[in-house]
Design a protein around this nucleic acid. Structure first.
Length: 498
DNA sequence: GGACGGTGAAACTTCAGGTTGCCTC
DNA sequence: GAAGTTTCACCGTCC
């Protein structure tokens, strides 16, 4: 098909976006980095003059209690009916963008592959600016499967009879190769992930634990029927891999071999239930043994959990901050449960990244806000939330492992940390945070005004509370601490403020 | 003559996203 | 590998 677009800006992406809007249609622009998504949206929005979505823009700006630079930038774009979308956005902002794109208010979304799959957000055009992405092996073409996902966003069944998927290239040569690879090319074969060690050991333990497979024969039979075996073909090598994992699981005492049957130990069963990598569990156990000899603080636990595969991808220590992080690490060394690898070992990079990630979480529980975290760690609200959730799960797993291994003295500390992590608050707010509808902001406000626990709420005058957190909420928390407030008001359900 | 501001080239820096789980402290 | 950002030299303008 021949597509003629008026050249206006010198940048094909912008021209295409403007053309789409002129046709009164919508488009998704796919780029390969978060930074590019933001920049691209910004550039397009600069060209738009006659649109003013101020209300929507304000909503996006105020999604967090204090707007980050990212919020400001997004708000500016949305004002012109353009948005960017990537994993760094807060979920409130993602929802806002998606909903308003569906409604047709937002015309263009510049995004990373977040919108390629999973979410049903069709547009008239899919504009694919980048078909290469940085990987550990340098810049690599994206898989054909991924191209198909992006292209598949084009064409809204209820609005258009067809859609347009457009790849942008820089030269004729590139145009031809891209056409051959993506448009004419076959999608890649799918490869079984069972071959990856962490996955294999996790499933092996899980299957033994649930008694799906117990004898050696059953184990081989089961895995022999998997897609992995079908693809891999070499059953001897397969058995070797399985045996290696079985030995590891036995050495770690997660399984036992009795009467020709593998059985999960109590510990192994719990680990399978927790669904963490047995290696992570083993490392937790190994480190907890040393816990008694070390003066522990929240950061100790945070580094321990960050230093596991489940926390990937970790925050990266950037060239400029390398010395700073290293210095911080040296200062905290005495509190670490994990043994720090030597600087010359390959694990050191992961360790220092884990340490940085832990520092970020440590600042979060010291009530630092998103603005601070973005400036100091280059971590965006969406990414922070994802890390917190993951850390929460791992802390739960850690406490379960501590319990089973008779480290009862640690349970309280871990539970407190978990609670603090969930709320992003200092220890002193713990009592107030137990109230429904009271998050770190409101709890801090109450605390600063001398209301420091549930008893203080009981004693506090209603009008004092009302001034601090509003009428409805004041009554609500009074009732939560067991007082009855006479007034026939509809009780409104408020969202949790975390 | 010096402060200031705009411009552009060169030097650096950084680089997607998704899933798993439990209950309460 | 390349986009995006930062840095810095250079030049013109204004007071």
């Amino acid at each position: 098909m021949n597509l003629q677009i008026q050249e206006k800006s010198g940048a094909p992406v912008i021209d295409l976006a403007l053309d789409t809007i002129e046709k009164n249609k919508q488009a998704l622009v796919f780029v390969n980095t978060k930074r590019s998504a933001e920049k691209c949206a910004e550039e397009i929005s600069k060209k738009i003059k006659d649109v003013d979505l101020s209300d929507l823009s304000e909503k996006a700006r105020k999604a967090l209690s204090r707007p980050t630079k990212q919020c400001e930038r997004l708000a500016k774009c949305i004002k012109a009916g353009i948005a960017f979308h990537h994993a760094g956005l807060h979920s409130k902002q993602k929802d806002l963008i998606e909903a308003n794109f569906r409604e047709g208010k937002i015309k263009i979304i510049c995004c990373t592959p977040t919108l390629a799959a999973g979410i049903d957000l069709p547009a008239f055009r899919s504009i694919i600016r980048d078909v290469k992405r940085f990987t550990s092996r340098g810049m690599q073409p994206i898989p054909v499967l991924e191209y198909l996902q992006m292209a598949g966003r084009a064409g809204r069944p209820s609005f258009d009879s067809y859609g347009e998927a457009i790849i942008l290239t820089a030269s004729d040569a590139e145009k031809n190769s891209v056409y051959e690879k993506f448009v004419l090319g076959e999608p890649e074969d799918i490869f079984s992930k069972l071959a990856v060690e962490p996955v294999l050991r996790t499933y092996l333990l899980s299957l033994i634990s649930t008694k799906v497979i117990q004898s050696e024969k059953e184990i081989y039979d089961f895995f022999g029927k998997t897609f992995w075996a079908f693809q891999f073909k070499d059953m001897d090598k397969l058995k070797k891999n399985i045996n290696k994992m079985l030995k590891l699981l036995s050495d770690w005492q997660f399984i036992q071999f009795l009467d020709n049957k593998y059985r999960a130990t109590l510990l192994g069963r719990r680990i399978a239930e927790l669904y963490i990598d047995p290696l992570t569990a083993h490392n937790f156990m190994h480190c907890l043994k040393k816990a008694k000899e070390i003066k522990l603080k929240p950061l100790s636990f945070l580094v321990l959990i960050c230093n596991s595969l489940e926390m990937f991808p970790l925050l990266r220590v950037k060239t400029k901050e390398y010395d700073l992080i290293q210095e911080a690490l040296a200062k905290q060394e005495a509190f670490m449960i994990d043994t720090e690898p030597s600087m010359f070992e390959p694990e050191y990079d992961m360790y220092i990244n884990a340490f940085k990630t832990a520092l970020m979480l440590d600042d979060w529980i010291e009530e630092k806000d998103d603005v601070y975290l973005l400036e100091h760690y280059d971590v965006r609200p969406g990414e922070t939330r994802a890390k917190i959730e993951r850390a929460n799960w791992l802390l739960y797993a850690l406490s379960e492992i501590a319990r089973i291994n008779q480290h009862q003295f640690l349970l309280k500390d871990i539970a407190r940390l978990k609670f603090r992590l969930r709320h992003g608050a200092k220890e002193e707010l713990l009592a107030l945070l137990k109230l429904k509808n009271i998050g770190r902001m409101r709890a801090r406000k109450l605390f600063q005004n001398g209301i420091k626990d549930l008893g203080a709420i009981r004693k506090a005058k209603l009008d004092v509370l009302e001034k601090l957190i509003g009428k409805k909420l004041a009554k609500d928390i009074k009732e939560q601490v067991g007082e009855k407030i006479e007034e026939k008001n509809n009780r409104r359900q408020l969202n949790n403020f975390v």
